[in-house]
Each structure stands twice: as C-alpha cells, then as structure tokens.
Nucleic acid binder design. Sequence first.
RNA 1: GGAGAGUUGGCAGAGUGGUCGAUUGCACUAGUCUUGAAAACUAGCGUGCCGCAAGGUACCGAGAGUUCGAAUCUCUCACUCUCCGCCA
Length: 422
Amino acid sequence: MLQLAHIRENRQEIIEALQKRGINAVEIIDQIIALDDHRKQTQSALDQSLSEAKKIASEIGSMMKAGRMEEANAAKAATGTIKKRNQELEQELKSHEAGLIELLATVPNAPHASVPAGKSSDDNETIRAWGEAENAEHATPHWDITKKYGLIDFELGVKITGAGFPVYLGKGAKLQRSLIQFFLDQGEEAGYTEVIPPHMVNAESGFGTGQLPDKDGQMYHAKEDDLYLIPTGEVPITNIYRDVIIAEDDLPIKNVGYSPCFRREAGSYGKEVRGLNRLHQFDKVEIVQLSKPEDSYAALEVMVEHVEQLLQKLELPYRVLRLCGGDMGFTAALTYDLEVYSKGQGRWLEVSSVSNFETYQANRMKLRIKSKDGKKRLAHTLNGSALALPRILAAILENNYDGEAVRIPACLVPYTKFETIE
RNA sequence: GGAGAGUUGGCAGAGUGGUCGAUUGCACUAGUCUUGAAAACUAGCGUGCCGCAAGGUACCGAGAGUUCGAAUCUCUCACUCUCCGCCA
C-alpha cells in the first residue's frame, strides 16, 4: 500500500500518477486523508484519557499503601466513566485503523514517471528487441512437437488432475529440469543466494506481497488449513523479510529461487491457453531483490539485463516492453515484460515480468531499513521471473525445430547431456 | 493425533498484582586511554502511534477477560521443545 505520510504530502502527484492507470483516485484519496485525520484525533484523545486513568490508578495505589481506605474506595468508584470512555475510544481507533487499511488496500501503486499512460497491452512501449523474429521454415506449434517426440502428455495430466496440469516425460522432463538448473546457476553467478521456499503460504504473506485481498480468486486455497498455493515464488521469498528491520550495510539482498506456481486462471479459454501457453501449474525461477530506495531503479535495470542474458544464451529472439499504466500489475510502480518470439505460433509470449514495487510491498510487510544513525525507512522490493519455464520450453522447441529434430541450445547441453531430440 | 513443559528486548536471562518498557550479562555503537589493537573505563543502545517540541501512549507469543491497576491472575488460540503414536 501507499504510505499515508506520502499520500498526505504528495496528494496531487499521486492522483496524477494513478490517472495513468485510468483511475480517478481523487475521491478515495480524500476519503483516506479524512479518515486519517479522524484517526489522529482519536489517538490523541485516547492517549490523554489513558494517561488520566493511569494517574488515578497510581494514586489509588499510594492511598492504599498509606491506609486511607475510604479515600481509595471513593476514587475507585469514580473510575467507571473514564474506563468506559477508554473502551469507546479504543474501539473507535481500531475501527479507524482497520478502515484505513481497507481503503489503502484498494489503491494500486502509483506508476513511476517513465510509465506511459494506457489502457491495455496495445499501449505498452517496446524498449528494444534482440534476434530475428521471423517464422521458421518448418513452423510447427510446440504441442505438435511435444506429441511427436513424447515430451509432454497433456491428456494424461487431465486424467490425473485436470486441464492445465501437464505431465513431462523423458527428454521433455529432462529439458525442463535442465532449464531450472541452468537458471539457478546463472542466478547464483550473478550474486543471488538460492532459496527453496514453501509452496504454500498463509494469508499474512498473501497480503504482504499484494495478492490478498484483491486477487484471492486467482489462488488455490486450502480451506481446511487456510493456506494458499503460491501463484509465484515472489510471495514466499519476499515474505522472508516481512516484519524485518535490515541494517543498511546488508543491502542489497538478492535471492533466487525455484518453485512451482499455481494459478486458477479462472475465465481463461481458447487458443491463448493451448499447450504450454497457460497452465494451472508451472515452474519458475524467480529473482528477488531488496534495496535502498535510491538504488532500486538501477537494480531494476540490472535485473532486466540478467534476464536478457539468459534469453541470449538460449538464443531466443525477444523484446523488452515497458508496461503502460493500465497493463501493469496492482502493486508495481514500473514493470518490464520480456517476450520471446514463438516461431511455431507466430506470436510473442511473455516469459518474464520484472518489477520495482518501491515501498508498496514493504509498507504492507513492515520491511524496513535501519541506517547507522538509527533512522528507519521502508525498503524497496523488486522481483522478476528468470525465467518462467513453459513458454521458454515452447519457444526452444518451436524455434529449434527443423522438421527432423529439435536442436538443444549449447548452453543447456551440459545439463541435458543430449544435443538433439529426434 | 495423545501427554507434559515452555514462549520476556539481537542473544542469554531476572521479574509472579502497584512508579516495570521492564534488573543484569553478552553483543552492538560512540568516546577516553593506547604507536596500533586488545583490555579497562564512560555514555548510548527495542518497536509503533499522537505531538513543532517538551512529552504522552501502546507493545513482555496472539486474542479475550478479572482488577482502580496485569509481564505477573483466568480463558481461548498459535507456536516451540520433550516423550508416545503415525509417517516420506
């Protein structure tokens, strides 16, 4: 969520930034500020009232010690009204605080100055591109290739679980595992510390990174234990640092982690979701950074470069997009999407999304930085896919297929131990 | 899943109804001393909220309750440890 102090100080600026998302936030922002005013007043009144009650209690203590019992009893009798007032003020404060969080949680992050205004993916800005985005001579969609070589069985997944839960077989499984290993090794080389996080999270974690309350329909929920299957490694990895105060010298913190991701994808259908294009369960290697506010945008660029390096090593043509306000996720201030060109389908596939959340998540998580002089401030959080597996796998199969065999990119051969699928 | 023990500031560990946000030690930070370091000594050293500030207020696993007053008493829950059961 946005910080209250920041909203109060930069009301107009935030309203203008949110317009890039197509949101008119005037009313909600003013509502928030008004409620915060009430909160402050109530806090003051409560503190004063509590102070009074405390004073009387200690006076009664001294009276009793001195043996002046009648006096003490008289004072006791008079405490009723104060006590009642305290309770009322406490209730009022609580409801103001809860109301504020509720309102704040409905306001998305304010886009960065460089974010273009826009409604949909049509308004995204292409920053740069790499490689030849042309259809292959033997253009074949990956679902035909996986079938031909027995790499993935989608129907088998339907039997075991349901649509969107494919079964990887033989060289298909090995290629998948090799990619994970490759991505993790590359992350480690770039200075990220590997973590293997839990694949289920509680509601607090879901709130911390911003999936809850707004996107809870997208996550699988185990009601019995009130736990959610993670939609991305971002959730458990970033929440490692929930409620933590980090010494400034320990920043930046860089983690890389592999995890399966589970998404309900309610409402998706058609050829957009065919094959590996959109699944309910998929694998992803995620990179996460915590940084000082003044360093976060430089870190974001380096993260994008890291992902680009991966794609170049895999020899996949790609382009980098700066998302417009309307296409950006709820919690992001700036997002770069990386798309690879899928030659078998003749379309771009999103394989990575790298974002700076500034203090939006840190504020929800109470993730703070402590400098040497003892001053505390919220950290900036960033994350990105490096990379999401299924569409990479699809692109590798489609882009390296010559009608006879699939050639494995050189960087993966040390992992797969085979050079072709035929 | 069953039985028992526990949960206090970065760590260790006091405190069982009244001025306790909490003794003390270690760690940490600054300073004195020293050629430098160590040692010793001095001071500082949790987090949130309200307030320009002085200051006020809240937090001793979480929530509720008893009381004029709760870290201390009662209840519920969570977690940790030990033993038993089950199990990859």
